[in-house]
Design a protein around this nucleic acid. Structure first.
Lengths: 154, 154
DNA sequence: CTCATTGCAAACGATTTGCATACCG
DNA sequence: CGGTATGCAAATCGTTTGCAATGAG
């Protein structure tokens, strides 16, 4: 098993080690590899996808280890579980620099990414009103893109 | 079985009947009762909650009927399935006048509804920038509610 | 040596589905 | 009647868990 990866963010590794230390856990090569792989990810990933992507890199790895590792990451705050779809949990690494949202065309499926500082600010305002501590958000705008709107008018 | 309910919204009943007519379906008292009960609801409800609330009102009703009815409502657009929690689907009746978004606690699962005209306006601005025609949107803010944030600090 | 981690198979639990029966038009 | 709706039990399927074996400190 190759171990030539590295967890780049000191923040990440510190947080993980703190958690391991304060909870009487031990470290393991398999787990470290999974975590390193997961944190390199720049989008949501499901346990199954993660498992499939690493199973040939870690001989004999089992599903349960992947699940348990993701659970650990969620507990120490390095991954955020997202419930987009029915019965499937996706995990998002929290270290991503820039958040973006989506315009989704209900006709052709095209997805346009955008960012909007104003909206993020408004969200903070709302969160304060409810004494809510934001970790993450998801804004999806559904509708028709230019082409599809045009096509419908014809 | 008492049948003293009434589906209040013409819109709702028309939409449902249209769907039934155009899909070669039939009507049934049990289904109508469930739908009437569901549409009176003013918040998300899960299949299990719905089942528990009506099982003593409709003798011998089964889970599958509740599930199938909710599926039907989702198909004809009278209910929107929401995936807030792990592995549990909640259905929201769409007849509510005002659109609202959600603050969702990732610790205890509490859901706070809010509305924000500012954000809706900003969305329009963004849509215009991309020549996008909005039909609908979903904004979910994930994080910690007051209690859970407090508990974590302890 | 002691306890945490892991792989496997079995268990879970919300949802779906196959099938025989009840119901609607 | 012909076909849909229903209840029940069994099947699904992502996820969790019990247990014996392995690994870390």
């Amino acid at each position: 098993m190759k171990m030539n990866f590295k967890i780049k963010k000191n923040y990440d590794i510190k947080r993980l080690n703190d958690y391991i230390a304060t909870h009487g856990l031990k470290s393991s090569k398999k787990r470290q590899f999974i975590i390193g792989y997961f944190l390199k990810q720049d989008s949501h990933i499901s346990a199954e996808e993660l498992y499939n992507q690493i199973k040939n890199k870690i001989p004999g790895i089992g599903y349960s280890t992947v699940y348990r590792t993701l659970k650990l990451l969620a507990e120490c705050g390095l991954a955020i579980p997202q419930y987009f779809e029915k019965r499937l949990v996706r995990f998002e690494p929290i270290h991503k620099k820039e958040h973006h949202d989506h315009l989704i065309c209900i006709e052709c499926g095209k997805i346009i990414e955008f960012t909007c500082g104003e909206i993020e600010k408004m969200q903070e305002t709302i969160a304060q009103r409810y004494k809510f501590h934001i970790k993450n958000h998801k804004l999806e705008i559904y509708g028709l893109c230019l082409n599809c709107a045009k096509r419908r008018r014809e």
